[in-house]
Amino acid sequence: MMQLAQQTQVSGVGKARQVSAYVFVSCAQPKRIVHALSRLPGVVKADALLGASEAVLVVERHNFEALQTLLTEVQATPGVKKVSVKLAA
């Protein structure tokens, strides 16, 4: 996650930009996981992917620390096996 911190950018003078990311979640029951994760604050969209044991989330948080907190909650959700994060540019 430290790599994510290095990728975040600051826009303007002293104003942190909102952090958006795509989160790919490997899990055994994508529909159940999507239902649980869509309730977390910061999850804008959550979809189960057909033909794969994955779900994809679109998340937005006001800073990197809040994003890290959200990702920790996602990873701790029962049934989640692995989380892969891609920051939006």
Rank of each mutant, 00 (worst) to 15 (best):
M1C: 14
M1H: 11
L4C: 10
A5L: 15
A5P: 04
A5F: 13
Q6K: 09
Q7A: 12
T8K: 08
V10Q: 08
V13M: 11
V13P: 05
K15G: 10
A16K: 02
R17A: 15
R17K: 15
Q18E: 15
V19K: 00
Y22F: 14
Y22Q: 08
Y22A: 07
F24W: 09
V25C: 05
V25D: 00
Q29M: 11
Q29Y: 10
P30H: 02
P30D: 05
R32A: 09
I33C: 01
H35L: 14
H35R: 11
H35Q: 14
A36W: 00
A36L: 09
L37I: 03
L37C: 06
S38I: 02
R39I: 06
L40G: 02
P41K: 09
G42L: 01
V43W: 01
V44S: 10
V44T: 09
K45L: 11
A46Y: 00
A46N: 00
A46V: 02
A48Q: 04
L49H: 08
L49S: 10
L50F: 12
G51C: 09
S53P: 03
S53Q: 12
S53K: 07
S53Y: 09
S53V: 06
E54H: 09
E54L: 12
E54P: 02
E54I: 08
V56R: 06
V56P: 03
L57I: 05
V58G: 02
V58R: 04
V58H: 04
V59Q: 01
E60P: 00
H62P: 04
H62D: 14
N63Q: 11
N63I: 07
F64Y: 09
E65Q: 12
E65I: 13
L67A: 03
L67K: 01
T69F: 08
Q75G: 06
T77L: 07
P78A: 07
G79Q: 04
G79L: 04
V80H: 05
V83K: 05
K86Q: 15
K86N: 14
A88C: 15
A88Q: 13
A88H: 12
A89W: 15
